[in-house]
Write a protein that binds this DNA or RNA. Structure first.
Lengths: 260, 260
DNA sequence: GCAAAAGTGTTCTCTATACACCCATGG
DNA sequence: CCATGGGTGTATAGAGAACACTTTTGC
């Protein structure tokens, strides 16, 4: 960790002041929607991966950089959803309501006062979300003593600052735009069952869908290839596996897929 | 103008660095969707009303302040839609591609170098849009030699920097979220005809809608009061006037009005 | 009376929804 | 052979699109 902090401290004036990005990196695993969260040394609380913006860097590129640093992936579906500019966005000195969240801040203050001061300002942060196939991700630690984990959306731990609010806003945004977002191709692995797809939609919509009607509606879109392979293992009929015709799917998404 | 510039120059350190807001203030007049644009002295190009953020001011409040300063209105429908952070967002020295846009910047540079330097940095700007009943607005000049005008969306003049892009992004955003936005109650005057309402939807959707079906669909929502008054003047049957039951309408909007 | 636009009615098609039914599989 | 979940069929109600018809008004 200390090496990275040193690096940032040395380059403080290369950053655009007062602005940052935070990334809600979403994935889908075991039929659950998950988000990639970090936990720093000295911290009990979790946080979103985020960062500052270079003076000569596009806002969007800063978000891509954060993603690349974390997931190792290069071409990812990434989209801005909201900018958070509350005047009392708790800064690093006031990172959490409870005493829990003070560890990192205290450590910084005594060891890296200049970095502490820099971090301890007000940031207006822009939220981006990424849709990621977890099975293709190789998570990268950026700081030596950092933990990262894919955590189910419906079972979030306590988060620093307003990061929980950022996640919920992100989910709201996705729900509102569901028909125009390529969720399926980006979150699902190459081969998947109709049940996977249905559970994915249900996670976003927060409601149960009717199995048989869902299947027909999806198949009628004409963007699936049914594969001859089947899965096995359960005491019931084995489902087909499907894969996407991604080009057709992306065309559909532009016009708005009618799933509602 | 000079008084206002002086004021800003004196208070430069009270602003949050590197961030700004720009407001797309939309209104509806003569069955046309319009946006409020400004033109400064020495400038041939038009611009969106915008401003910086006080150090102790919420981002959203900064947008409200800009609106209040311009329209005199206090409680307005206002919503954030996107943050623009391109690294080459042309700054004030590079305000337009053509020579047209240099007037203001040249004037500033020689007369208010400190202000010029402040303005001449990179800004990451957050776009807000407002929905406004033009008939209730009293436009306020903020700078002495400033012109302001309601200009039809489909007939925009040349704008400074990326302001045209900001407007189009705003319209895209509204189109995508149409079903969840209270466009009608906020843009229309208290009493209006079905034709007004239809033209309003058509402006956003960029397509013609079928008259009779549109009317039925709207009436079935059950949020209109039909007023006994009618209009007159044209050589045809006079249409009814309607007004909203705003509470019911806003409830509907939360769930998403099904106009598509 | 005629043109123009408003209000209402009708028809046809398509979709959504709710189930019913048979099929494959492991225990 | 039975419980479980997958795949397909069907019947009904409602929504949407297109267009016909009637009404009101100023000229």
């Amino acid at each position: 960790m200390d090496k990275d902090i040193k690096e940032i401290e040395d380059s403080i004036n290369d950053w655009h002041p007062g602005s940052s990005v935070d990334c809600v990196i979403l994935g889908y695993e075991n039929q659950k929607l998950k988000v990639l969260l970090l936990q720093l040394e000295f911290e009990e609380l979790w946080m979103l991966p985020g960062g500052m913006i270079h003076k000569d860097e596009d806002l969007k590129d800063a978000a891509y950089r954060v993603l690349r640093e974390r997931t190792g992936l290069d071409s990812i579906y990434l989209k801005q959803f909201h900018t958070f500019g509350h005047k009392s966005r708790p800064n690093i000195a006031n990172i959490a309501a409870s005493e829990k969240g003070k560890g990192f801040s205290t450590y910084l203050k005594s060891n890296y006062p200049q970095y502490y001061n820099w971090m301890n300002r007000r940031y207006i942060t822009t939220g981006y979300f990424a849709l990621v196939d977890i099975s293709k991700v190789e998570c990268v630690k950026k700081q030596i003593n950092e933990k990262h984990e894919w955590i189910a959306i419906n079972n979030l731990p306590e988060l620093i600052m307003d990061h929980a609010k950022i996640i919920y806003k992100c989910l709201d945004f996705i729900r509102m735009q569901l028909n125009y977002l390529p969720i399926s191709t980006n979150l699902l692995p190459n081969e998947f069952t109709m049940k996977d797809l249905q559970k994915l939609y249900e996670s976003f919509l927060n409601e149960k869908l009717e199995r048989s009607n869902f299947q027909r509606k999806m198949l009628k879109l004409g963007v699936f290839k049914r594969l001859k392979k089947k899965m096995a293992g359960a005491p019931n009929k084995a489902p087909y596996l499907y894969c996407f015709n991604e080009d057709k799917y992306n065309e559909l998404v532009k016009k708005g897929i009618g799933i509602l």
